[in-house]
Amino acid sequence: MILLSPFSGLFQCTKNLFLRDGSTGLRIKEIARKNAANALSVANMVMGMASIMSSLNGHHHAACWMVLIGYLLDLADGAVARLLGACSVSGAKLDDFADFTTFGIATSLLLMTSDLLDNILCVCYVLTVLFRLCFWQSGIPFMYRGLPCTYSSAILASASLLPGGNQAMMRVIAVAMILFMISQNFYPHDKVLESQTWKKAVFAGGVVMVFCSSFPPACVYYLLWSVSYILFPTSLWSSKV
């Protein structure tokens, strides 16, 4: 028995080490599960900040595509949170901050010029997005009141990338998006990654279009996608369809 005791002690230490490693692994997996959606929200915010810096440095094409990448990330973070059962109040607040950065400030800078009226339009757009994020609750589950700022930003970024696009056209679109966002119309919650296969294919197509960003038709894809949500919100994009 005395001879076996060192081996027993070694066995016990090894067992405790494996148990500790297993517990650490489970803890890491749990942390990753709880923060996967938050990581996507942070990535969305990073895209927004990168778009802001691109706009300030005159890289308009890159700024637009950063907004569109943020658009994809925003559609994914909610789906990931629900899939992993990691929805939280802090996560929702982080998502709002990311949305305001990308779809508020970054998108408004796409409209900025040296003209005073354009700068006033930028301020109005940012305030509208802020209002939209603060008062989006409709009282009806899985419904938005007013157009989600994600889609208005995608339309503005896509239109800005179109060949032959001009500032007058952007002003008209921006005013239209502001009116849609403050409207009392109801829009369905777009669970693109939790719905029909064709919606998932549309999302996958959007990811592919990111790698084709140097080709003008790529922005048309996002434009048609976003406009279809405005024109056919219930018949196409409702999660109940």
Rank of each mutant, 00 (worst) to 15 (best):
A79W: 09
G22S: 14
L84Y: 11
Q137Y: 13
A106N: 07
L3A: 13
M1L: 06
M143A: 14
D95P: 04
M209G: 04
L193Q: 09
I120L: 15
T150D: 12
M53D: 07
T150L: 06
S158L: 05
T14C: 08
S55E: 00
M45Q: 08
I155R: 00
A204R: 10
C87K: 11
I2L: 11
F100P: 01
I69C: 06
S239I: 12
N16A: 11
L193D: 07
D99P: 08
T14D: 07
L68P: 06
T113Q: 07
Y221V: 01
T101L: 06
I120C: 13
L83T: 13
M45A: 15
F135I: 06
Y229P: 00
L40R: 01
V129L: 04
S226Y: 08
Y222F: 15
Y229E: 01
P233T: 12
I28R: 15
W198L: 02
M1I: 05
P216M: 08
T113W: 13
N166R: 08
K93W: 14
Q184P: 02
A98P: 06
W198E: 00
R132V: 05
P141L: 09
L162P: 02
S213H: 12
L236H: 11
W136M: 11
K93T: 11
V227D: 00
V202A: 14
C64L: 05
E30Y: 11
L17G: 06
K191M: 08
G91W: 02
L109M: 12
L179D: 10
M49Q: 02
V241A: 05
A176F: 14
L3H: 12
I52G: 00
H59G: 03
W65K: 03
P141H: 14
A204H: 11
G25S: 13
L162F: 15
V42W: 08
